[in-house]
Structure formats: structure tokens, C-alpha cells
């Protein structure tokens, strides 16, 4: 039995923080666990923190893209956060630019993106550009 990557729930967001060097089976398990948790919790967003990952090869890269697609079909948006610069440079050279995957520099920005995406969807006032109640445009 291999180790599993924990999936944490914070409000309507699921947080996956990958802290160990991933064996291929763990990657496949994570895909399944996360899909189940999205359905069970009705989560609207998924944040995958890869700041501890020293490398992302084509297998893990493809998993990130697959998870993002599956989550979208289940009504949740995925943001991958914390990619190291060296990993980003390597991925591009490898030929994997993860075009379909939303990314953010860190956890804070990732959660911020999911919150604003949700508020926009729910039509919460004050989130449209130049909203009248603030009197100033936020940049």
C-alpha cells in the first residue's frame, strides 16, 4: 500500500499540498481521491501546492492537466501554485507548457484568484472594475 497525498478542505476549496517525491501510483491515487472529494464536498475550487516539488516530469505534468480537466467537469476550478522557477524552465524545455492549467505564484494568490472567480460568478457587487461604491478603480 503506497502513501497517499492528503486532501484538505477549507470552506469550498480543496487544498492539496504535495510534500513528498511522488511515486507514479500516488499520482494516480490522488487523481481519484480528489475527484471523489470534489463530488462529496461540492467544492468550487482546488488548489494544488507544488512548492515542495523539486521536479515535475511529463507524468506529473500530465496529471496536473488531467486533474484540472476532471475538476472543471465536476464544477471546480483548479489552480496550481508554488512552482519553482527551475521547474518552470525545465517544463517548458521538456515541451510541456501546461496551457490548460491555471497557475499562481503562491497559495495566497491562488486562493485570491478562486475567491474573485467565485464572487464574479455569484455577481457579488464591488468586484466589477471601477465599481461605484469604492469611488476608485482598483488596480
Amino acid at each position: 500500500m503506497t502513501e497517499r497525498v492528503p486532501v484538505l478542505k477549507i470552506g469550498d476549496v480543496l487544498l492539496v499540498s504535495i510534500q513528498v517525491d511522488l511515486e507514479d501510483q500516488m499520482v494516480l491515487d490522488l487523481q481519484e481521491d480528489l475527484s471523489d472529494r470534489i463530488v462529496a464536498t461540492g467544492a468550487r475550487g482546488v488548489v494544488i501546492d507544488i512548492s515542495a516539488l523539486e521536479i515535475v516530469d511529463s507524468f506529473v505534468g500530465r496529471m496536473l492537466a488531467t486533474i484540472a480537466s476532471i475538476s472543471r467537469l465536476l464544477g471546480a476550478e483548479t489552480v496550481v501554485v508554488g512552482m519553482r522557477p527551475a521547474v518552470a524552465m525545465t517544463l517548458v524545455e521538456l515541451g510541456l507548457s501546461l496551457g490548460g492549467v491555471r497557475t499562481a505564484l503562491n497559495l495566497e494568490q491562488g486562493l485570491g484568484y478562486l475567491n474573485s472567480a467565485r464572487d464574479k460568478q455569484l455577481g457579488v457587487p464591488g468586484f466589477t472594475a471601477g465599481s461605484p461604491d469604492t469611488g476608485a478603480e482598483t488596480r
Binding site: 523539486e54 521536479i55 515535475v56 516530469d57 527551475a86 521547474v87 524552465m89 525545465t90 524545455e93 521538456l94
Partner: peptide, 12 residues
């Protein structure tokens, strides 16, 4: 960066 590239290649 070169460490990361080499380890990634080795992983593939």
C-alpha cells in the same frame, strides 16, 4: 536549473 533538468531527464 541544470540539476533540475538532469533529474527530470533521468526521471523520464
Amino acid at each position: 536549473v541544470d540539476q533540475t533538468k538532469l533529474v527530470t531527464a533521468a526521471s523520464e
